[in-house]
Each structure stands twice: as structure tokens, then as C-alpha cells.
Design a protein around this nucleic acid. Sequence first.
DNA 1: CTGAAAGCGCTAACAA
DNA 2: TTGTTAGCGCTTTCAG
Lengths: 299, 299
Amino acid sequence: MRAARELDYRPNALARALRLQATRTIGLIIPDIRNDFYAHSATVLQGALEENGYRLILCISGGDAAHDRSYLRALVEHRVDGVVHVPSSPTSTRDLALPDAVTPLVELLRHSPEMRFDAVVSDDREGARALTRHLLELGHRRIAMLTGPAAYSTTRYRVDGYRDALREAGLDAESEVVEYGSYAPASGYAMTCEVLAREPRPTAIFASGSPLTGGMLRALAGHGLRMPHDVSVVAYEDPEWYAVSTPPLTCYALPLHEMGRVAAELIVRRAQQPAGERVPEIRRFSGTLVVRGSTGAPR
Amino acid sequence: MRAARELDYRPNALARALRLQATRTIGLIIPDIRNDFYAHSATVLQGALEENGYRLILCISGGDAAHDRSYLRALVEHRVDGVVHVPSSPTSTRDLALPDAVTPLVELLRHSPEMRFDAVVSDDREGARALTRHLLELGHRRIAMLTGPAAYSTTRYRVDGYRDALREAGLDAESEVVEYGSYAPASGYAMTCEVLAREPRPTAIFASGSPLTGGMLRALAGHGLRMPHDVSVVAYEDPEWYAVSTPPLTCYALPLHEMGRVAAELIVRRAQQPAGERVPEIRRFSGTLVVRGSTGAPR
DNA sequence: CTGAAAGCGCTAACAA
DNA sequence: TTGTTAGCGCTTTCAG
């Protein structure tokens, strides 16, 4: 031991992992670290993994399916014990994530259409329904929904929930205003301008993603519209800045903490389980409607 | 090749790295992924490294020096080719980062007091001076500064810059209002309440970190104060939400893109250089004052 | 050009 | 208890 200290010996984790056939490392692939939704999930997941004696390698795919696949491959080659994946698109996981599934994979927040993997997601349909119903109860009848790409499972579920609520209120397809774009701020801006030009103009907007919300707010300010007086606004998820925005935003807050913990548990369990014989497990979490200052009765 | 494809062969990156004595991987340690300052830097750094054929392992220290050291050790044991480090405290790097410096290390955004390593930082003193001078030119004479821990080099430089500006304007130490806390939102909230209780009440506030700024805005709203009418506000750095805040925040924007690129260049160069014989290189970058709606003449 | 072998640093099994 | 050795999967060198 003294010799080790004197020589400043560092065990070689590579050789160790090679010998043990286990790295005690989990890879996480997220589309964008600057999105609070993902950043928060990553933080929570890292904490939960640490408690189980696992390390986290974080990869940022930039929302690009090719990057997604390339990182997935890199992680497999680095022999991580498992991968947690927030898919950028429904095709990201296809092909990859081997048929014999050597490396276990858990999908977080979104899941790929095949549902071949464990998934930890929010109940998007229920959440969108709750937000829309809140607006309907305030008296809004013309509600525009701003969403990301239709290819995302999250987008589809949220649109479904929006429709559910309209239908329950006795509104038909005529009154639906759904704008598909991307979750980028610029897209939120453009979609907002688009729906504001519609006749009759919507009295409320449902923003279904936080970066998009930023663009929407800028567009509303640009049109000189004030919330909730001129237009009511609700948003999915609850990044910190929603509460300090003026006015604070009504939203649907997800139990990200719990979801991260469960994802960690799942992937650790799979990592210690013999491969094969895995029955995919889907865990769906409900959030809570947080009513703040951005919603009110229509003018 | 066909056999490889049929067997779904995956090269073992561990064995490869063990043999080659190089992982083509750089570790990045940041205090908090949810802080846009760090998140943006990480994104930029990852992109720049990728162009050089390097991978990024991201570690989140939670602003805790013990975590910092533990991750630093883990990265060294994983034989990363280099580490980029945003120190959580001045003591993080001490002891670790070996005397004979096997693994090269570049400090980003902040640097440790010994300056034994390469560092890529912003010119905090100049930036704080520019923001303070902007407020002075608008006529403010009582400017409160809200900062993080005095132990951070960034904090110290920013306070120095604030003092420089006051002194240049002929104000003495009497007119300084500096509040030390942490960069957490809750701390921003508390510090704001604190300085608002001072007599005479400051007419302007300088928030020296973005999570802190969120707390400050909430406190101002809680006191029913409006910007820039009741109080002017400036902030260091320019996360996206400053521009969509109401009103948009006057701030000092850093060339994060360039800084990330330079950090990547430095660490890649060091990684390919034989150990020893390294003369630490400090690169300091100036930002730009972005004047927006949160600042005006005092009432 | 193809094939065999050594060795990167570690752990686990086995021998002394 | 202490010491030796095989082998994880790769690359590189050297022999055929």
C-alpha cells in the first residue's frame, strides 16, 4: 500500500472492466442538454445510479437520429452495462439495439413504436387532456395546440389528449387547431404567428414543449398580447423558469424525480439480469396540473 | 466481414483502449447541467471534440468539491486522454491532478488559484465593470451586487470589476452593496429580499449568475417592483431565457462558442503532447454588453 | 500476403 | 497466507 501511494498508482479501470466483463457504467443519450426537461432527468438519473454504485456517461445527440445511433453503437462498444435512451425519433432505436439484445436498454420520456424495450414515460394523453380541460372550464372554445413532430410518440399522445378533452366538451373536429412543427424556440415563434393569423383567432394556446414555449412567449409579446387578458396559455412540463415568467405559466408538472429513480432501478435490474428472457415493461406516470397566472377566462 | 456481420460483431472499445493506451475520450466535469451557462459550454465542447475525433464523457459534480475530486479520479482511472474541468471550488483540483500530471487538464470558466493548468475563462472583471458602468451611466448611484461564494475566482473577479467601475465614477467603499450567497435560485431570492431592506434602497441590482437571477426576479415580483421603472437589473452571462423574460434582461454575453472551441483545441493538443513540459496557458475572453429592457434611469 | 504470438493491466482460480 | 498463472479482446510485430 505504501508503495502504491508513493508511486501514485491508479488502477486501470479499462483492464478491470475487460477482465470483469462489467463496467458498472450506464450510458444516457438525450437530445439536448439545454432543455430543462432532459437536463433535469439526467441529473435525477445520475443521482439514482450513483446510489446503486453505477456511473453515468452522458451523450448529447442533438435530436438527430443518426447521432442517436452512433452514440448507441459507441456505448455498446464501450461495453456499458446498460443504456437509458430518450429517443430523438421513432427510428433511432430500430436496427441498433441488437436482436439478441446484449446491452439492456430503457427508453425514457418517449418510447419507440415497437415497444420492444422497457420504458419510463409520462401519461402524455392524460396530461394534455387535463391542460385542455382546464382551458375549457375557463370558457375557452377556440384553443390552439402547438406541438413538435408528429413522429414523436409524445406528440401523438398529447394531441390525442387534447382531442379527448374537446370531444368531452362537445366540440367537434372543426374547432381543433393543431400546429405541428419542432420543439425548437424558432418553431414555437413561427407556429404562434401562424395560429394568431387564423380566423377566428384562438383565445388560448397550449404549448406542448418548453423550448417551443419560449418562442411562443416572444411571439405573443411581439404581437402586444398580454396573458391572460388577451390570450390564455398553458404548457406541458414545468421547467423552473415557468414559475418566474411574467405571468407565471399554468402547466402540467411531471414527477421527473420519481421517473428518474424508476428508470435507474429498471436499468440496474436489467444489467444484473441474464440477457434474453426480458419482457418489456412500460411504466407510465401521471403529473399534476399547476394553475398559475397565465390562464383566465376569455375576454 | 460477412462473418462479422452475421455474428453481429462489436469491437470491444475497452480492449482496444487497453492495447492502444489511448481512449480518444475527454472527460468534462461541470457543477450543474441545468445551468444554461454550463449546459451550453458542454454542448459546444462536445461538438468541437467530435470534429477532432474525440468523445465526451460528462460528469455532473453538483457543485460539490468532494464529487469533483471523485469524478476526477474516476476519469483518470478510466484513462481518458484529458479532462476539462469547471471547478466547483478552489480546492477541487488540489491534491488530485497528479504532480507529474499524467492526464492533462484544462480548466473552463473558472480557474483554481494555483493556475497550474491551462484555463479558458471569461474576462469577469471587465464584464462586471461594463455592466456596472452601464448602470452608472444611466444615473444609478446605489447598485447592489448579488454574487455566489467568495471562494470562486469568478466571484472575486466580478466583485473587483464592480468596484473598479464604482471607483472610476468617484464612488467610495460606502456605496458598495455586495451580497455573497450561492448561485442557487433560493439564494438569489434571499439576497434580493436582503438588499431591498437596506436603507437607502438600491435603485439597481447586478445579478452575477443565471440561476440566482431567477430567484431575484421572483423576489422583485413578490415585492411588486417593476423593471426598469422601480429597479434596474443587469445580469452576467446570457442564457436564452433572458431575452424572453419580461422585460428582456440587460446582460453581458460571453463568446461561449469560441471558448468551447478553444478549450477543445487545448485539451486535444495536450492529449497528443508528451506529458511534462507543459507551460500553463490562460486564455481570457471578453464578452459584449447587451442592453435590453431591464435597465433605465433611476426614478 | 497470411498467421502466430506477445502483451496492455487486471482478477480469479489454483498451488504452494 | 502468499505467489503464480491464465485469459478478458484487442493491436502490432515478426515469422513463414
